[in-house]
Write a protein that binds this DNA or RNA. Structure first.
Lengths: 338, 338
DNA sequence: ATGAAAGCGCTAACAC
DNA sequence: GTGTTAGCGCTTTCAT
């Protein structure tokens, strides 16, 4: 079936292309009668304006890109959910790009987006990202970039995060309060903002309680589950840790799996707390104490900032530094003295 | 910073626009020397061709749409992951649309996509969808549609599913083997293909074992967690069921929550099996017996079919009916005789 | 091997 | 209130 365009509508109505175009966009200088006729016919023929033509002409795409490390991850899935909800309210389209923690892919995506395919970009950077030139290049071409969760270090960037340092300090303190003295930290890439902040909060809590730092208790986990599992098993078997603070959910899951495999009981032998948006945290054996981030709201907030920038309510150069609070939800994995 | 276009490249190289365009697309009738010069300059200036112009001219967008009920859902997140991996291999872009199980939204998205914004569509229909006219309209405009998981009933559709009927029969038989006699089914919308098939498999297993169907044990769950929770609580308290087969993961989670709240022990008092892609199934209390779908592969397969159609390796009208196998993974939530 | 020119469908400035 | 027209950046046919 041939696609119907504005020219055909015009011909069928004995009107000019311009009139039809304006009628469809509800322009003020078209008579009510004409508008109705045009809209009626357009609806009847299932006319949908060609977005490529419109984007080309207006130099606007009504599309945003979301660049994230992964999607099969409760946190990012929820954040994307939030982003989508705002995009839909604004009749925008959402393109998804997954870096799988690969810096080259992230650069490639960013580079492509210089083309003008999208009006703005939301990004949570990969664990391998070491500089932000590829993202700054977008801003230089007037494509606003808003960072969420794993953000740029640049002072003038727009970023939405949670109180990672404070939450991590709290999480670690929580373990200390529960009687842990040898607390391990399963850290995420120290290239990322959250990696540094979460480790920072951990170190702060140790310092606050005069507990010396033992570097062998800080495990830099990566992207490979088997490798992480081996490191964690080593930690559990030989490092005599009695508490574990995992910077991200997947490391906690691996910890649970290893504890189960090695017959180490949580919380009796080791207590576990983790950043996590796991829906089933309370149903685990034992229920997992979590620091739960408002992932959906972070997505919504990041998208709102982006749209406010696109609508010129916020100047592109204005820094934003919105920090939402995470929630420490205490469950049995850190329950005290047995 | 001004965006660089083909015209500027041409001017800087003292070449015509046409030559530059051809050189960039590696056309045979451009000399090697010219190609190199063009490509070098393009790279140096970070030139990226304007996709709107290209799409308009070629009537192709290098973009596909994915329409799914939700994204904060292990199954769909994994499927999207698979889809994205194939899209990336083909240098395609992926637009995400979430229906939140709303038929009107699904129609709206489909309607918009008549515009030519995308070259093809992957869809898992909403639980509220009762007819497929909106999706057939896309095919009539030569935009191929491939269904996955929740598919169209139409005989000539391209669909990728799992063996829902057989897996459900097996799941129910599994409960029967474990000693259950009053088995409840937490069903998903009977408008969906999977809703009907999963219930069908359940009924078949009952029939195979000469167990009479008790309609009060079939609960049609919806989209509202509280309402589902109430129905399930009612089931657990008053319907004397000793086995539950949940058609989707979230109903199993609600079941666990209700059992915990009502102090009903799994599997002693009631055994539970569910379709689920929960990563933590084995860490739950008790570990949940699941029918696990190859979600990532379903996504990959669906996307492959779509690309093969776009590349004319498969005729658009050709039906496809690919059925991947799910896996029943037995865990403690259905363990026998206590 | 390179270039001129038409035109994809739409928008917007400018007539009338 | 409606119409004419140029042009967004690119691809592609047809000359040269």
């Amino acid at each position: 079936m041939e696609r119907v365009n504005i020219k055909q509508l015009a011909a069928m109505l004995n009107l000019s292309i311009a009139t039809v175009s304006k009628a469809l966009r509800d322009s003020y200088d078209i008579s009510k009668a004409t508008k109705e006729k045009v809209i009626e016919l357009a609806a009847r023929l299932n006319y949908e304006p060609n977005p490529h033509a419109s984007s080309l002409r207006r130099n606007k795409s009504k599309t945003i890109a979301v660049i994230v490390p992964e999607i099969a991850n409760n946190y990012f899935a929820l954040a994307i959910n939030g982003i989508e909800s705002v995009a839909e309210e604004n009749s925008f389209h959402v393109l998804i790009y997954l870096t799988h923690e690969d810096f080259e892919k992230e650069k490639m995506f960013a580079r492509h987006l210089l083309s003008g395919r999208v009006d703005g970009v939301l990004v949570s950077i990969s664990g391998a990202t070491t500089d932000y030139a590829h993202l700054r290049a977008l801003e230089q071409k007037d494509i606003p970039v808003v960072y969420f969760d794993r953000v740029s270090e640049a002072e003038d960037a727009k970023r939405i995060t949670t109180d990672d340092f404070e939450s991590s300090r709290l999480a670690t303190s929580h373990l200390i309060t529960k009687g842990c003295t040898r607390i391990a930290h399963l850290a995420i890439s120290q290239h990322t903002s959250i990696g540094k902040k979460r480790k920072g909060g951990y170190l702060q809590a140790l310092a606050d309680h005069n507990i010396p730092v033992d570097d062998s208790l800080i495990i830099y986990c990566g992207n490979y589950d088997e490798k992480n599992a081996a490191s964690i098993a080593d930690l559990l078997l030989y490092k005599k840790c009695d508490g574990i603070f995992a910077a991200v959910e997947k490391y906690a899951i691996t910890t649970y799996e290893q504890c189960s495999a090695l017959n180490i009981s949580i919380p009796q032998q080791v207590k576990v707390i983790a950043f996590s948006n796991l829906q089933t945290a309370s149903l685990l054996n034992p229920p997992l104490t979590t620091i739960t981030q408002p992932a959906f709201d972070i997505g919504r907030e990041a998208a709102s900032i982006l749209f406010n920038t696109l609508n010129k309510k916020i100047p592109p150069g204005d820094p934003e530094n919105i920090i939402l609070k995470s929630l420490l939800i205490e469950r049995d994995s850190t329950s005290g003295e047995w």
